[in-house]
Amino acid sequence: TGIVNVSSSLNVRSSASTSSKVIGSLSGNTKVTIVGEEGAFYKIEYKGSHGYVAKEYI
């Protein structure tokens, strides 16, 4: 489990790349469930599926 550490919002992406499609966003202080790691990204549970967020903001 981690907490989103941004002042505005954090993009949730379809894969572990900054060039991948943005599938949603999370507000600061949102609790997320981390299910894996891939490079500079965490794989998280997101809306019944999975998404990826940059580690530096969790």
Rank of each mutant, 00 (worst) to 15 (best):
T1P: 09
G2Y: 05
G2I: 08
G2D: 04
I3H: 09
V4R: 04
V4D: 03
V4M: 05
N5Q: 09
N5D: 06
V6Y: 05
V6T: 14
V6A: 11
S7D: 10
S8Q: 12
S8R: 12
S9D: 10
S9Q: 12
L10H: 03
N11H: 15
N11G: 09
V12K: 00
R13M: 15
S14V: 13
S14F: 12
S14Y: 12
S14N: 09
S15T: 11
A16E: 02
S17F: 07
S17T: 09
S17D: 12
S17M: 07
S17V: 06
T18P: 15
T18L: 15
T18N: 15
S19N: 14
S19V: 10
S19A: 11
S20E: 03
S20I: 02
S20G: 15
S20N: 03
S20F: 07
S20M: 03
K21Q: 13
K21V: 12
K21S: 10
K21C: 10
K21I: 11
V22F: 07
V22L: 08
V22M: 06
S25N: 11
S25M: 15
S25C: 12
L26Y: 02
L26H: 01
S27T: 12
G28V: 11
N29Y: 14
N29Q: 12
N29D: 09
N29I: 06
T30A: 12
K31T: 13
V32H: 02
T33Y: 11
V35S: 04
E37M: 09
E37Q: 09
E37G: 05
E37S: 09
E37P: 03
G39F: 05
G39N: 08
A40M: 12
A40V: 09
A40C: 12
A40D: 15
F41D: 03
F41Q: 02
Y42R: 01
Y42K: 01
Y42L: 06
K43Y: 07
K43P: 00
K43G: 02
I44T: 01
I44V: 06
E45G: 04
E45W: 10
E45I: 14
Y46L: 03
G48P: 05
G48K: 07
S49F: 10
S49V: 13
H50C: 08
H50N: 07
G51M: 02
G51R: 02
Y52I: 01
Y52K: 00
Y52T: 00
Y52E: 00
Y52D: 00
Y52F: 11
V53R: 00
V53F: 01
A54R: 13
A54M: 14
K55P: 00
E56A: 13
E56G: 07
E56W: 08
Y57F: 14
Y57P: 03
Y57S: 10
I58N: 02
I58W: 04
